[in-house]
Design a protein around this nucleic acid. Structure first.
Lengths: 338, 338
DNA sequence: GACACTCGAGAGAGCGCTCTCACGAGTCGC
DNA sequence: GCGACTCGTGAGAGCGCTCTCTCGAGTGTC
C-alpha cells in the first residue's frame, strides 16, 4: 500500500503518488492558493493516504525559522519552582498562547551555573526563534547577552537596572498601596511587612509600596523583615517581627506563601487573625483561598502574564514593534485575613 | 575581521578561515580524534574567533536526530498544574537529567482536545527523539498511538489497561498499607478514605491499599468518598464522610491537597487533629510540612520519578533495552496529623 | 488572427551539515 | 628501495524542504 516501504514519506513520495511536482505539493502543504482545486485535492488525498508530515528540520534549514520559542527559567526561579504556583501558572499561560499560534515551547531550566553558557550556545544556534525570560534577579546579564546575540527577547518582570529589552510586569506598588489603605481603613496602626528579596524588582517595589502606604499614618515607623518569598521564610520573619514589636496589629507579606507562613506563626503564638493581627499577602495563588483564615491578598493576573509574554514574543519574532513595557493591573482581593 | 559580514558563520566559513576542509572542521566539532593536533587547534581557534555554532536543523536533517525530548502533560495534568507540586517537581527532575545529557526539553501542554492531533503530528514530524508522557487517565490512547508511530515512549504512572510502553511508577498500595497499619496501631477503628479519581491508576491503587489495610481490622466497613486530588474536593469529601459517619476517628486521603482540605473541614466543625481524627495524606509535597497540624503522609520520590523518566527515555532513544517498568518505593513520613 | 498578458505548474538551486569514499603522504618490512 | 599498509584529509553526494525562475497554456483585446 505504501510506495516507499522504507522510512517516512517525503515531499517527493507524495508528489509521485499524486502525479505532481515537489513544488506543487509544497504549495499545497503551505496553503498557497495558486493551485488548481482538483490538483490540490488529489495532493491532499495522497498526503492523507501516505501519512505525510513535513520534516521540520529540512524546512527550518531553508526558512531560517524553527517555530519554537524558548522559555528560560533561571536558577532563582527553579529554586521556588516546586512550591510556588507562580511559574507553573506562567508556563501554562505561555504554553496555551503558543499552542494557538502553532509554535512550540522549549523549556530551558537554568538550574546550574554552567547552563548559562549552554543557553547562550543554544540560542546562538538559532534553535528557537525567540526567548521568553522569566528573569528575576537583578544581577542577571542574560537579557542583555541575548539581545546582543540578536535574538528577540521578552522578560517577565522589569529588570533591576535599565531595561534593555521589552518586559511584562504588574503594578506592584499600587497594589500594595491599596492593601495598605485597606489596613489603615480597618484602623490598624502598627503595620509591619515581610519583604521579598531586595535583589529582585518584585521584592523592591512591593517594599516601596509598603513604605508609601505607611505615610498615610503620621508618625508610623516602618517595621521590615526580609524573606525569600517562600513559606518557611514567612514563618521565621513573623517571629522576628513579633519579637521586635509585640504590638503589631497588621502585616503585609510580599507573597502569599510568606503570608501563609506568617499565619502559621501567629496561630502558634495564639494571635487571632484578623482580630489581633490582620494579614495581607501578594499573588493570589490558588492556595490563598485555602489558608486559615482565607487570605486577603493582592491579585496579580498570573495566567495573563504568560499569555502576554507569548503575545509579545510572537510579535517580535514576526518582525513587528512592541511596547517597551506592558504593566498589568493588580487588585486587592478581600477575604477573611484582613 | 569577519570574513562573512552577512549572517552567521557556517562550517564553510570556519574551514576557509582555518585553511582546512569542511569535513575536517566537522570532525573537530564532533570530537573526532583522527585530526592532527595542530590542525585541530587552529580550527578550534577559528571557531572561537568567528563565534561559530553548528546549525542544529542542518545537523538533524542528516543525522535524523534532534537531541530533544518531549514531555507531554495531558489535559488532566494541566488542570491541576497550577495547584499541585507534583508536575512541577517531575518537570524539574526530567529537565535536570536531560540537561546533563545535553538534550533539550520540549514541553507539550495538551490543554485542549485538539492538541491530541497536534501532538501526534508533532511527533510524527520527528521533531523530538523521544517522548515522556505524564499520562494519568486510563482512557488515554496516546501512549499506544505514539508507540505505533515508532517513537520511543516512557510514561509516568502505570497505564490503566495493559501496559504497552515502559513506565515509571511508585508503590502506591504498599505505601497506603503502611499508613493504614500506622492508623490501626494508633488504635483507630473507624477509618475512612478520600479516594482519588477511579479512572487513574494512582486513584485506584491507593484505594486498593486502603481496602487491604482495612482487613487488619475485623468487622471494619469501608467508608469511601471520591475526590479529584485537589483541595476543594477534599473539603467536600470530608463533609460527606462526617455526615455518613460522625464517629470517624481517622481518614486517609489519596493526596496531600485533599488531606489539607479534610483538615480544613475538620477544623471548621471543631474536630481536633489528631486527637479526635487522625489524618494521613499521600505525596509529601512541600506544603505538607506546613499544614496545621503538619501532615503525616506517604512520601513518593517526585524528583526521582522525573530523573528516572529522563534516564529511561534516553536509553530508549540510544537504542538500548529498558525494563518494562520501574517501581519506586514509597514510605510513611510521620508528622503530627497522625 | 496575432499579440500581450495572466496564471498554474515544474525544474533546479541551495539551505548547512554529516559521512562515505578516495587519495596522497608517510611508515614499515623484507 | 619497493610494495603494502596506515593515517589524516578532501571531494562530493545527499538529507527534505522552499523558493525563484521559467515555461506553457489559456484568456482577452483590437
Amino acid at each position: 500500500m505504501n510506495e516507499t516501504p522504507a522510512g517516512r514519506p517525503t515531499l517527493e513520495t507524495v508528489a509521485r503518488a499524486a502525479g505532481a511536482s515537489r513544488a506543487t505539493v509544497s504549495r499545497v502543504v503551505n496553503g498557497s492558493t495558486t493551485v488548481r482545486p482538483d490538483v490540490a485535492e488529489s495532493i491532499r488525498r495522497a498526503i492523507a493516504d501516505l501519512g505525510y508530515v513535513p520534516n521540520p528540520a529540512a524546512r527550518s534549514l531553508v526558512t531560517q525559522r524553527t517555530d519554537s520559542i524558548a522559555l528560560i527559567l533561571p536558577e532563582s526561579a527553579t529554586r521556588v519552582f516546586s512550591d510556588d504556583a507562580f511559574f507553573p501558572g506562567v508556563i501554562r499561560g505561555v504554553g496555551e498562547a503558543l499552542e494557538k499560534a502553532d509554535k512550540q515551547l522549549v523549556l530551558l531550566l537554568a538550574s546550574t551555573q554552567s547552563s548559562h553558557d549552554r543557553i547562550l550556545r543554544y540560542v546562538h544556534g538559532r534553535t528557537v526563534d525567540g526567548v521568553v525570560l522569566a528573569s528575576m534577579h537583578g544581577a542577571d546579564t542574560l537579557p542583555e547577552e541575548l539581545r546582543a546575540a540578536g535574538v528577540p527577547v521578552v522578560t517577565s518582570g522589569r529588570p533591576l537596572g535599565e531595561a534593555t529589552v521589552p518586559f511584562i510586569d504588574v503594578e506592584h506598588a499600587s497594589g500594595v498601596e491599596a492593601a495598605m489603605n485597606h489596613l489603615v481603613g480597618l484602623g490598624r496602626r502598627r503595620i509591619a511587612t515581610i519583604a521579598g528579596p531586595q535583589d529582585m524588582v518584585a521584592g523592591r517595589e512591593r517594599l516601596a509600596g509598603y513604605l508609601t502606604g505607611l505615610r498615610a499614618l503620621s508618625g508610623a515607623v516602618p517595621l521590615v523583615e526580609e524573606g525569600d518569598f517562600m513559606r518557611q521564610s514567612g514563618i521565621d520573619a513573623m517571629e522576628r517581627l513579633l519579637q521586635r514589636d509585640p504590638g503589631i496589629d497588621a502585616v503585609f507579606a510580599a507573597s502569599d506563601l510568606m503570608a501563609d507562613g506568617a499565619l502559621r506563626t501567629l496561630r502558634r503564638v495564639g494571635r487571632r487573625v484578623p482580630d489581633d493581627v490582620a494579614v495581607i499577602g501578594f499573588d493570589d495563588v490558588e492556595a490563598a483561598r485555602f489558608t486559615d483564615p482565607p487570605l486577603t491578598t493582592v491579585h496579580q493576573p498570573i495566567h495573563e502574564i504568560g499569555t502576554r509574554l507569548a503575545e509579545q514574543i510572537l510579535r517580535l519574532v514576526a518582525g513587528e514593534e512592541v511596547e517597551a513595557s506592558v504593566v498589568l493591573p493588580t487588585r486587592l482581593v478581600i477575604r477573611e485575613s484582613a
